[in-house]
Amino acid sequence: MSDATEDDLKGVVARLEELIAARPKGAGRGLGSARARSRQLGGHRSSFRGQGMEFDEVRAYQMGDDVRTIDWRVTARTGKTHTKLFQEERERPVLILLDVRTFMRFGTRGSFKSVLAARAAAMLTWLSLDEGDRVGGVVLMPSGVVSYRPQRSRSRILAFVKAMADATQDGFGTEPPASEPSLADALARLRHVSRPGTLAFIISDFHDFDDPALRELGRLSLQCQVSNLFIHDALEAETPQRGLYRVSDGTGVAVLDADSRAAREAYARRFAERREIIEQMSRQRGMAFLPLRTGEDPADILNPARTRRTRGSAA
């Protein structure tokens, strides 16, 4: 990478500076803003009652209630002791799974999928931090899986974001490893560090979404509110026209042969089937499904019309 200029690597690797600047302008109140709240990306309040920030109701005093919560006005008016109840504000950690493995290092519009994924992950990180949430997650790289404990400290969050940028360069310019960690591995890691009520974002092209990954994602959805960000490129979603196409991963160059009609149809079918599996499972399990294509702005996922969930509208 030392011989490559910054312009040569634009869109190929993510720079820390661009991830720091990934927070949408005018986002204001983070994931709890009115737009994001309508998609259930944030704005969380416990259904448990207790001492908290927001008044809920008054009820008759019961043995064991805190005497400091007695509502003396209602008590005087009714002649019976009443106590105030409050809606308890409950913290919700945010966990992000960022996939930047070899298959993500492809793109024909603006950037590699891995760079778009890193930008989306950074944007969600900053929005969550603005909301006061602890943020952490898992970074899935060609060389391994690294976990980051949810934090609220800006300095530690900056280290998490730097890890996202560095991950897009993991193994850059070298031969890909013989085997890479699987999406199922990363989902299992994420599930083990999550707790009930966690807000989880899975940012991947899901190219190896096999039965183990499906099971892990299903288990995760039982205890977390999950949003699946399906990263893809236009050339994956659309059958290429006949011809020979030069493609590169930033270091080597290969040729994609699209002269065969059968090959083109099989190519398009594989992508459509993968997308349908992810979308259908998201719908069945009440998870958000957010397709994001290279060349698009990651902030587009904050648009309610982009979300598909069991009770939601079509994207």
Rank of each mutant, 00 (worst) to 15 (best):
D205G: 10
R154W: 11
L199W: 08
L124G: 09
A213W: 00
S194P: 07
T168F: 00
Q169K: 15
M123S: 15
R219D: 14
L127H: 01
K113M: 12
F209R: 00
F206W: 00
S114L: 00
A122I: 05
G107D: 08
T198R: 05
Y148K: 06
V115K: 04
A165I: 05
L116H: 06
P176F: 01
P142K: 02
V139A: 09
F106W: 11
I157Q: 03
K162Y: 12
A159Y: 11
H207F: 12
R189G: 10
D208I: 07
D208M: 07
A118T: 03
F112V: 05
G144T: 10
F160H: 06
G173R: 03
D205K: 07
F160E: 01
P196R: 09
E216V: 03
T125V: 12
E175F: 11
R154S: 11
L127E: 13
S153Y: 10
V145R: 01
E180F: 01
Q169A: 15
E216P: 06
R119W: 08
D211G: 13
M104H: 01
R191A: 13
S221L: 04
L129W: 14
L124K: 02
H207L: 15
G144K: 08
R109Q: 14
E216I: 03
T174I: 09
P181K: 06
V146I: 14
P212W: 08
S155K: 10
V139Y: 00
M123Q: 08
P150D: 07
V145L: 02
S111Q: 14
Q169W: 13
T102H: 06
G144N: 05
T108A: 09
A178W: 04
L158F: 11
F160R: 01
S182D: 07
V193Q: 15
V161Y: 01
L187A: 06
M164W: 04
A184R: 03
D210V: 07
D166Q: 10
H192I: 11
S204W: 00
R134D: 09
F106A: 02
P142D: 05
A118D: 07
R134I: 11
A121D: 09
